[in-house]
Amino acid sequence: MNIFRLAGDVCHLVAIIILLLKIWRSRSCAGISGKSQVLFAIVFTTRYLDLFTVFISPYNTIMKVVFLALSYATVYLIYMRFRNTFNSENDSFRLEFLLVPVIGLSFLENYAFTPLEILWTFSIFLESVAIMPQLFMITKTGEAESITTHYLFFLGLYRALYIANWVWRYHTEGFFDQIAVVSGVVQTIFYIDFFYLYVTKVLRGRGKMTLP
């Protein structure tokens, strides 16, 4: 554990809580991609199956359970509790375009050809593209509420901090997880364009982010 890892996990948690609170307080999930949230729930479910096979630390176990619970709570709010506010016409990203290549790649490139390792690899690859339906939705509608942009900012910050964590671990422990690092870098690239818009539009302006 190092400061980058810890800060990254905290940002991840903050992002998820921001989204959950936004939906809960406004009683609305307008502007939120339910598909992205379902993908994140699948990511946590397939990655944290090792809760049943290995014990790493109390921190590790607690965080995994919290991430799982919060991601399912988010999906529940979007598709059940506040489904009448869910804008499904704009959440039209075709999931098969993500799932088919990700499933294929996780069978081709993994650390061991066992169900748990393939599912872990699948979750790593899927996480790297899971935000695409949300970014697609913002591009399609041309705007995002500022609270949604704060959510995306913390998610992107979490990814950037994980890269710092890997640089740190490589130099201090010689640790290098090529699957996590390559897909982590790819994932962070998706946020760079958004970061630029966030700084120039949301932080310097007020209210909604509108695309040029």
Binding site: R5, D9, H12, R47, D50, T53, V54, I56, S57, N60, M63, K64, F67, Y111, A112, T114, L116, E117, W120, Y162, N165, G174, F175, F176, D177, Q178, A180
Partner: peptide, 10 residues
């Protein structure tokens, strides 16, 4: 140095 089955990151 990757250990199969033990992933300490989240």
């Amino acid at each position: 140095c990757h250990r199969v089955g033990v992933k300490d990151e989240l």
